[in-house]
Simulated assay, not measured.
Amino acid sequence: MYELFVLGELMTGEKHGYMLQEILKNAGGPFRQISSGTLYPLLSRMVENGWIHLIMEEVPASKRPRKIYQITETGRIRFLELMEKPLEYGADTTELFHYKMVYFRYVPKSVRLDCLNQYLKYLETNLKHVGDFESELMFYKPEPEQQRTQLLRVLDHRKRIGSADIEWVSAEIERLVSEPE
Rank of each mutant, 00 (worst) to 15 (best):
G162F: 04
T38W: 14
L113M: 09
K141R: 15
R112D: 02
E134M: 13
L87P: 00
G8T: 03
E181G: 00
I77A: 14
K109F: 07
L96A: 03
S178W: 01
S35R: 07
Y40G: 00
S35G: 12
S178H: 05
Q147W: 10
L123N: 09
Q70C: 04
L120W: 06
S44W: 01
N49H: 14
Y119G: 10
E134G: 00
D165M: 13
A27W: 12
Q146H: 02
Q70F: 00
R160G: 00
L87D: 02
Y140V: 07
K121R: 14
L87S: 08
M101S: 10
I166E: 01
P108C: 04
R78D: 03
G8M: 06
L176K: 07
K85S: 11
I68N: 04
K15W: 09
F97E: 04
K109Y: 03
E95C: 01
R112F: 00
L137D: 09
M138H: 11
Y69W: 09
P180S: 11
D132L: 07
A171H: 01
T94W: 01
M46I: 02
L155A: 05
D156S: 13
T74Q: 14
L137V: 11
M101N: 09
H53R: 14
G90T: 09
H16D: 15
L10E: 08
Y106L: 04
V102C: 01
H157Y: 14
L176F: 04
K128V: 05
V169L: 03
E14W: 01
V59W: 01
L39M: 15
Q21N: 08
K121P: 00
G8Q: 07
R158M: 12
D92Q: 13
